[in-house]
Design a protein around this nucleic acid. Structure first.
Lengths: 245, 245
DNA sequence: CCGTATTTGTCCGTATGTATG
DNA sequence: ACATACATACGGACAAATACG
């Protein structure tokens, strides 16, 4: 707490994380997900340590955790690299996410209360408005909340953890805001179907509608992606394909 | 390969893993899964480092990976502890495993070849024999292979990785060989149902039969477990409830 | 409640391996 | 192909926090 110890750059707030390794990890994760560390790029231990004002020890430990989480790739004696997802990777993530989403839906049918149903209905109604206005900015966070609420209601901490790790990994493939004209409306129609299944406490229908929702999302994303990459190639500006944003 | 380099104690074989951190991790994992490091017990960094003849650095890195994998629990400034699973944890693992198994089954219906179907049929036939003889020792490995083959056929590396991590975590709850009289027969009847679903390339049925198979497995395990713990409590030897073996 | 011992957390020096001119 | 530069991998030492008597 003395000024002498404060010579190290207090880049990071305390975050109620007393382990340095923890804050370093969170910091690196933010750098990755924000795109500041580009996909495929090497994560230089010295550079990170210098930037955060810590030693290389905590940086190495943080990286090992992130490797296990799937955000980094470790090549022995070479270093750690920000994981780059190709099309097959993205398909894998979507397929697994579909399964987890379906499982969440089916599990929730046995537990959901009418108050919780009301909350979901409110969210879907809000998305109806956003979809009608074609406003992705307002649609997106509500969509996240809708699925997160269902996930939480399962009460299965491992399912929640797996799902969230998958979402983070998916963010490596930075294609947020990649939507086609009718995507919002279609997506929310599927939300309505999920809502109906939950309403009737039909676990099979809940799985089915949830699973298909993600699979349709995959199709919508790839349709938009292919259209964009094709256009990008045609307009001789392929470099922008890496950072779509 | 020279004698000069061999002055460091070659406690561990090369294992074609050139990173020391990797072999340490594998070593610790073995210690955990074998039960040598008891559930809930603290993993002393110095002791492990001394035992393996390495420094604490690789040990710490290995532990961070195992924490992320779920085999260890990290309490800041206290150390890492072998994760202890209570009943709720085990239910979570079963539920998630059921979902992943169901997903694997449904995905495989679109990809499986007749040769691969034959292989599965052979495995189930072998389990029929084991079940009829009530021989768990021969049933168990074939059962593992049956589910692993289906898992591999999905071609989804993330699904495979998640599933295997879950299996390892489940091993923390050392209840292998905890079977009731008719368990083997019932289990393999369910295998037959899965086989039929794959045969007809019915993805919905494949999900359903696979999911239920694991859920029934959960019920069978808990039935045997409750019976055992009740007997243990009745015999005024409650301490044994912690280490079931 | 305090002092001591043990353990974790952190930092830095050195060696080995890889990439590059 | 060789030498140089650089980054990782590992070991060891110091500081801080916790557990124990």
């Amino acid at each position: 707490m003395t000024d002498a110890t404060a010579r190290t750059i207090p880049t990071v707030a305390q975050m109620r994380e007393n382990s340095l390794s923890g804050v370093v990890r969170h910091e690196i994760e933010t750098l990755i997900l924000s795109g500041e560390l580009p996909a495929g790029g090497r994560v230089n231990e010295n550079a990170i340590a210098l930037r955060l004002g810590v030693s290389r020890g905590p940086v190495r430990e943080a990286c090992r955790g992130l490797v296990e989480q799937g955000l980094l790739d470790l090549i022995p004696n070479r270093g750690v690299f920000v994981r780059r997802l190709d099309r097959h990777d993205v398909e894998e993530v979507y397929d697994l996410r579909a399964g987890l989403t379906g499982l969440a839906g089916s599990l929730v049918t046995a537990r959901i209360t009418s108050a919780e149903m009301d909350r979901l209905r409110t969210l879907v109604a809000a998305m109806d408005v956003s979809a009608a206005a074609g406003d992705f900015r307002s649609f997106y966070p509500v969509n996240l909340e809708f699925h997160d609420v269902i996930l939480q209601l399962t009460g299965n901490s491992r399912l929640i953890k797996s799902y969230r790790a998958l979402i983070k990994e998916f963010q490596l493939f930075r294609t947020h805001g990649l939507v086609q004209p009718n995507a919002l409306r279609e997506s929310n129609e599927e939300h309505h179907a999920i809502l109906d299944a939950l309403e009737h406490r039909d676990s099979v229908a809940a799985y089915d509608t949830s699973y298909r929702h993600v699979q349709h999302g995959k199709q919508r994303m790839f349709a938009a992606f292919d259209k964009l990459t094709q256009a990008g190639a045609a307009s001789a500006d392929g470099a922008h394909n890496r950072t779509i944003e």
